[in-house]
Protein backbone atom coordinates (compact mmCIF):
# COMPACT_ATOMS: atom_id res chain seq x y z
CA UNK A 1 0.00 0.00 0.00
CA UNK A 2 1.14 3.54 -0.74
CA UNK A 3 0.37 6.55 1.43
CA UNK A 4 -0.30 9.48 -0.84
CA UNK A 5 -1.10 13.11 -0.35
CA UNK A 6 -2.11 15.38 -3.21
CA UNK A 7 -4.38 18.27 -4.08
CA UNK A 8 -7.45 17.62 -6.19
CA UNK A 9 -9.46 20.61 -7.42
CA UNK A 10 -7.93 22.72 -4.67
CA UNK A 11 -8.70 20.28 -1.85
CA UNK A 12 -5.92 18.49 0.02
CA UNK A 13 -6.42 14.70 -0.09
CA UNK A 14 -4.65 11.99 1.90
CA UNK A 15 -5.22 8.34 1.16
CA UNK A 16 -3.79 4.86 1.45
CA UNK A 17 -4.04 3.03 -1.87
CA UNK A 18 -2.79 -0.09 -3.60
CA UNK A 19 0.44 0.80 -5.38
CA UNK A 20 -1.09 -0.19 -8.73
CA UNK A 21 -4.02 2.23 -8.47
CA UNK A 22 -4.23 4.32 -11.62
CA UNK A 23 -4.88 8.03 -11.20
CA UNK A 24 -8.16 7.72 -13.13
CA UNK A 25 -9.42 4.95 -10.83
CA UNK A 26 -8.46 6.97 -7.79
CA UNK A 27 -10.41 9.98 -9.06
CA UNK A 28 -13.49 8.01 -10.08
CA UNK A 29 -13.71 5.27 -7.47
CA UNK A 30 -12.12 6.80 -4.38
CA UNK A 31 -13.10 10.45 -4.81
CA UNK A 32 -16.24 9.80 -6.90
CA UNK A 33 -15.19 12.43 -9.42
CA UNK A 34 -16.76 10.62 -12.36
CA UNK A 35 -16.40 13.49 -14.83
CA UNK A 36 -13.06 11.99 -15.85
CA UNK A 37 -13.85 9.06 -18.13
CA UNK A 38 -12.15 5.80 -19.02
CA UNK A 39 -12.52 5.40 -22.76
CA UNK A 40 -10.01 3.16 -24.47
CA UNK A 41 -7.90 2.46 -21.37
CA UNK A 42 -4.90 2.15 -23.72
CA UNK A 43 -3.57 5.76 -23.73
CA UNK A 44 -5.06 6.64 -27.10
CA UNK A 45 -8.46 8.31 -26.70
CA UNK A 46 -7.92 11.10 -24.18
CA UNK A 47 -11.29 10.77 -22.38
CA UNK A 48 -9.27 10.56 -19.13
CA UNK A 49 -7.23 13.76 -19.58
CA UNK A 50 -6.76 15.78 -16.38
CA UNK A 51 -4.26 18.47 -15.45
CA UNK A 52 -1.28 17.54 -13.29
CA UNK A 53 0.57 20.65 -12.11
CA UNK A 54 -1.21 22.55 -14.88
CA UNK A 55 -0.35 20.20 -17.75
CA UNK A 56 -2.70 17.86 -19.60
CA UNK A 57 -1.97 14.19 -18.95
CA UNK A 58 -3.74 10.88 -19.48
CA UNK A 59 -4.87 9.74 -16.05
CA UNK A 60 -5.24 6.13 -17.28
CA UNK A 61 -1.50 6.10 -17.97
CA UNK A 62 -0.14 7.09 -14.60
CA UNK A 63 -0.36 5.63 -11.13
CA UNK A 64 -1.79 7.85 -8.44
CA UNK A 65 1.43 7.23 -6.49
CA UNK A 66 3.24 9.13 -9.26
CA UNK A 67 0.98 12.12 -8.52
CA UNK A 68 1.95 12.16 -4.85
CA UNK A 69 2.51 15.77 -3.82
CA UNK A 70 1.12 17.11 -7.10
CA UNK A 71 -1.82 19.31 -7.94
CA UNK A 72 -4.61 17.71 -9.95
CA UNK A 73 -7.47 19.51 -11.66
CA UNK A 74 -10.35 17.55 -13.18
CA UNK A 75 -13.23 18.81 -15.30
CA UNK A 76 -15.22 19.27 -12.07
CA UNK A 77 -12.62 21.73 -10.82
CA UNK A 78 -12.34 23.98 -13.86
CA UNK A 79 -14.62 26.71 -12.56
CA UNK A 80 -16.48 27.73 -9.45
CA UNK A 81 -19.95 26.69 -8.30
CA UNK A 82 -22.61 27.04 -10.97
CA UNK A 83 -20.38 28.83 -13.43
CA UNK A 84 -18.94 27.50 -16.66
CA UNK A 85 -15.33 27.88 -17.74
CA UNK A 86 -15.17 29.82 -21.05
CA UNK A 87 -14.21 26.57 -22.84
CA UNK A 88 -17.23 24.78 -21.33
CA UNK A 89 -19.47 27.71 -22.32
CA UNK A 90 -18.12 27.60 -25.87
CA UNK A 91 -18.73 23.83 -26.07
CA UNK A 92 -22.35 24.46 -25.02
CA UNK A 93 -22.81 27.41 -27.37
CA UNK A 94 -21.39 25.56 -30.39
CA UNK A 95 -22.94 22.19 -29.59
CA UNK A 96 -19.48 20.66 -29.47
CA UNK A 97 -20.72 17.29 -28.27
CA UNK A 98 -22.92 14.50 -29.47
CA UNK A 99 -22.95 11.63 -26.98
CA UNK A 100 -20.71 13.62 -24.62
CA UNK A 101 -18.41 10.79 -23.59
CA UNK A 102 -15.22 12.40 -24.89
CA UNK A 103 -16.23 15.90 -23.74
CA UNK A 104 -14.43 16.10 -20.36
CA UNK A 105 -11.15 15.05 -21.97
CA UNK A 106 -11.68 17.38 -24.92
CA UNK A 107 -12.32 20.30 -22.58
CA UNK A 108 -9.29 19.57 -20.38
CA UNK A 109 -7.10 19.24 -23.49
CA UNK A 110 -8.55 22.47 -24.91
CA UNK A 111 -7.85 24.42 -21.71
CA UNK A 112 -4.25 23.16 -21.73
CA UNK A 113 -3.93 23.94 -25.46
CA UNK A 114 -5.13 27.54 -25.01
CA UNK A 115 -2.58 28.11 -22.26
CA UNK A 116 0.21 27.21 -24.69
CA UNK A 117 -1.44 28.59 -27.84
CA UNK A 118 -3.70 31.49 -26.78
CA UNK A 119 -4.73 32.23 -30.38
CA UNK A 120 -4.53 28.93 -32.26
CA UNK A 121 -5.39 28.66 -35.93
CA UNK A 122 -7.48 25.72 -37.07
CA UNK A 123 -4.44 23.65 -38.03
CA UNK A 124 -2.99 24.08 -34.54
CA UNK A 125 -6.29 23.09 -32.91
CA UNK A 126 -6.48 19.97 -35.05
CA UNK A 127 -2.86 19.03 -34.32
CA UNK A 128 -3.29 19.60 -30.58
CA UNK A 129 -6.39 17.36 -30.54
CA UNK A 130 -4.44 14.38 -31.89
CA UNK A 131 -4.66 12.61 -28.53
CA UNK A 132 -8.43 12.98 -28.13
CA UNK A 133 -10.91 10.84 -30.03
CA UNK A 134 -14.59 11.63 -30.59
CA UNK A 135 -16.17 8.42 -31.82
CA UNK A 136 -19.34 10.33 -32.81
CA UNK A 137 -16.87 12.15 -35.13
CA UNK A 138 -18.17 15.51 -33.90
CA UNK A 139 -14.83 17.21 -34.45
CA UNK A 140 -16.01 20.18 -36.51
CA UNK A 141 -18.01 21.77 -33.71
CA UNK A 142 -15.29 20.93 -31.18
CA UNK A 143 -12.77 22.80 -33.34
CA UNK A 144 -15.21 25.71 -33.71
CA UNK A 145 -15.84 25.83 -29.96
CA UNK A 146 -12.12 25.92 -29.12
CA UNK A 147 -11.60 28.73 -31.64
CA UNK A 148 -14.51 30.66 -30.11
CA UNK A 149 -13.21 30.05 -26.58
CA UNK A 150 -9.79 31.42 -27.57
CA UNK A 151 -11.46 34.65 -28.63
CA UNK A 152 -13.61 34.78 -25.47
CA UNK A 153 -10.77 34.26 -22.97
Amino acid sequence: MAAISLTVNGKPIRAEVEDRTLLVHFLREHLHLTGTHVGCDTSQCGACVVHVNGRAMKSCTMFVAQADGEEIVTVEGLSGEGKLHPVQAAFQEHHALQCGFCTPGMIMTAVDMLKRHPHPDEETIRRELEGNFCRCTGYLNIIKAIGAASRAI
Binding site: V52, R55, A56, M57, K58, M62, T109, M113, E130, G131
Partner: peptide, 9 residues
Protein backbone atom coordinates in the same frame (compact mmCIF):
# COMPACT_ATOMS: atom_id res chain seq x y z
CA UNK B 1 5.92 12.31 -30.55
CA UNK B 2 2.51 10.90 -29.62
CA UNK B 3 0.16 13.69 -28.59
CA UNK B 4 0.36 16.66 -26.20
CA UNK B 5 -0.61 14.63 -23.10
CA UNK B 6 1.96 11.94 -23.89
CA UNK B 7 4.62 14.62 -24.48
CA UNK B 8 3.92 16.04 -21.02
CA UNK B 9 4.98 12.77 -19.37
Amino acid sequence: IGDPAVRHR
